[in-house]
């Protein structure tokens, strides 16, 4: 069945996370992701997953926001875990006189836990921050680079367009896949059909990009309003939590 992807979908609430400025949340996310990426041990994984639970509670977000993983992803994870199990490695357990190495599957599990943790942090930002506020936050975050001659305006424009286009493209790709399922058996085989889906999805994406390009040509480059937002007590709460978590991630044993 055709399923909808919930990318960067805001959940209307008035929680402390929602009230905090987008700049604070983006900066907090960047700090946590950097710390996590450099020290992705099991303790860090636990800290990040606890952060996600805390985020759901603080943001007063219902469990319904958590996306259901597509079957294809679950299948891919299953295959990957099987290879992980087959690769063996320490530690070993003995089962019916057979030594089974769990090293590979433990490593694979940690990889998934880290990836899903990072994805969860990004989703948390999307659930509590209006997509329209993200370019302004990115502009603020990147502004020091402007002094070094880096074309941050262009980077922000690209980011803005990507944020706008992502849900449209995701919807179109889902439609392409859905329509391909209705077709009779083709001579292409699975690989040929997969290539057809990929090509059509690419055409849809390129067409979207072309439409944005035309819009920029006729209306000029996107300008991000530099009006400063106001800081509130909610920002202080987010900064305090993010600082604690980031410190924990840095100091956690790897």
């Amino acid at each position: 069945m055709i399923s909808r992807l919930h990318l960067l979908r805001y959940v209307e609430r008035t929680s402390v996370l929602h009230r905090a400025d987008a700049r604070t949340k983006v900066a907090a996310l960047v700090a946590m992701v950097f710390a996590f990426s450099f020290n992705p041990g099991w303790v860090s994984v636990a800290i990040v997953w606890a952060t996600l639970v805390l985020g759901l509670l603080l943001g007063r977000l219902p469990a319904g926001v958590i996306p259901k993983p597509p079957k294809a992803l679950l299948a891919a994870m299953g295959v990957s875990m099987t290879f992980g199990l087959l690769s063996g490695g320490e530690p070993f357990v003995t089962l019916a006189d057979n030594d089974i190495g769990l090293g590979g599957i433990i490593l694979q599990t940690r990889l998934f836990a880290v990836t899903l943790g990072l994805l969860g942090l990004a989703l948390l930002l999307g659930w509590t921050t209006k997509a329209a506020d993200l370019p302004r936050a990115a502009d603020w975050l990147l502004s020091p680079l402007r002094r070094l001659g880096i074309p941050t305006d262009d980077v922000i424009a690209a980011l803005t367009l990507a944020v706008r286009a992502l849900p449209l493209i995701a919807d179109e790709v889902a439609t392409v896949i859905a329509m391909a399922r209705t077709e009779p058996k083709t001579a292409d085989g699975i690989i040929g059909r997969g290539m057809g889906i990929l090509a059509t999805a690419t055409v849809a994406s390129v067409r979207r990009a072309g439409e944005f390009g035309t819009a920029i040509e006729s209306r000029g480059m996107i300008r991000i309003p530099r009006t400063p937002g106001s800081w509130t007590g909610a920002d202080l709460v987010v900064v305090a939590i993010a600082a604690t978590i980031t410190t924990g991630l840095v100091l956690a044993p790897s």
Partner: peptide, 13 residues
């Protein structure tokens, strides 16, 4: 069931 989409390009592979 045949379904002709308004966004026809999405169904021509």
């Amino acid at each position: 069931i045949g379904f002709l989409l308004q966004q026809t390009r999405l169904q021509i592979l």
